[in-house]
């Protein structure tokens, strides 16, 4: 198999398996609860908090800012978790890691494929969230005014960036001894406040802001908001000095950087795991 085929087969089979696992709900009702109602409930909490603090100022642009930021931030936990978690799941639960590892496909591509299913399921949740916002909460989203090509390009860039961040985590998980449950979600949660998801970075204390400016996620969320609600998003100070194309270019550059770093980190971890005898360590004990 040449490099491209090794990548494609790994990705394809990983995606197929990921979907089988993610959608394996004998009860469709449970599936709905997990993938849609749970995120809706989380958003509802945020909305209620906003309503109390702002005295129901749903017309204020800040609401749109928060609502969209929160909705798209779901991709962070979902994709990070989806890509990295496959390592632990295959190793500890299905006990297949060693067999998958010695197949001809690229293990990296396989993990990226495994994450794809989570992306799809998160997309369902995001769509439901956006629709509920428009229908019930006066979310200022004018479908006709959305810059679709830029939105889709931005979404693709961001998800790719998240997938490679997930690979870095996957690499680390290959080296960890303890069952590190839900590390993807945890990392996602930790970065939530620094990424401008629910408030502009200016709200953070001065010394914490650089964290936000260094995170590609911040640029990504801002870009998505701009492509969806244009001027409303530009009213916020964080990246006001940047034109949308500049923002896009920055995000593209950062994504390229993350991809490179993710590939290097993952490969290094994998190589170390093979040296240290950690690839399938769990089956020995």
């Amino acid at each position: 198999m040449d490099g491209l085929r090794r990548f494609w087969f790994g990705f394809k089979v990983g995606a197929w398996l990921g979907w089988q696992i993610e959608s394996n709900w004998t009860d469709p009702f449970l599936f709905a609860v997990y993938s849609v109602i749970k995120p809706l409930a989380a958003a509802a909490i945020l909305v209620v908090m906003y309503a109390v603090v702002s005295r129901n100022a749903f017309e204020h642009p800040l609401f749109t800012y928060i609502y969209l930021g929160n909705a798209f931030y779901m991709y962070v936990g979902g994709v990070l978790q989806g890509v990295s978690w496959a390592v632990v799941e295959d190793r500890e639960h299905y006990r297949t890691l060693r067999y998958v590892y010695i197949t001809p496909v690229s293990f990296m591509a396989y993990l990226l494929g495994r994450g794809l299913a989570r992306f799809v399921i998160t997309t369902i949740a995001v769509l439901v969230l956006l629709a509920s916002g428009v229908l019930f909460l006066h979310l200022r989203l004018d479908w006709a005014a959305v810059n679709w090509p830029l939105f889709l390009a931005g979404l693709f860039l961001g998800v790719t960036m998240l997938a490679f961040m997930g690979l870095m985590l996957a690499g680390v998980l290959m080296l960890t001894v303890h069952h590190s449950w839900f590390v993807g979600e945890a990392v996602g949660g930790a970065l939530f406040l620094f990424s401008g998801a629910i408030f502009p970075l200016e709200v953070l204390p001065q010394w914490l802001r650089p964290v936000g400016y260094a995170l590609p996620i911040t640029y990504w969320l801002e870009l998505l908001r701009r492509t969806l609600v244009g001027s409303t998003a530009r009213a916020f100070p964080t990246f006001a000095h940047l034109e949308t194309p500049e923002l896009f270019a920055l995000l593209a550059a950062m994504t390229a950087g993350v991809m490179l770093l993710g590939g290097v980190v993952f490969t290094a971890c994998e190589r170390y795991a093979r040296r240290a005898g950690l690839v399938d360590r769990v089956t020995n004990y």
Partner: peptide, 8 residues
């Protein structure tokens, strides 16, 4: 079948 797929 899935494992066969890994081998193309």
């Amino acid at each position: 079948w899935m494992f066969a797929q890994f081998y193309g």
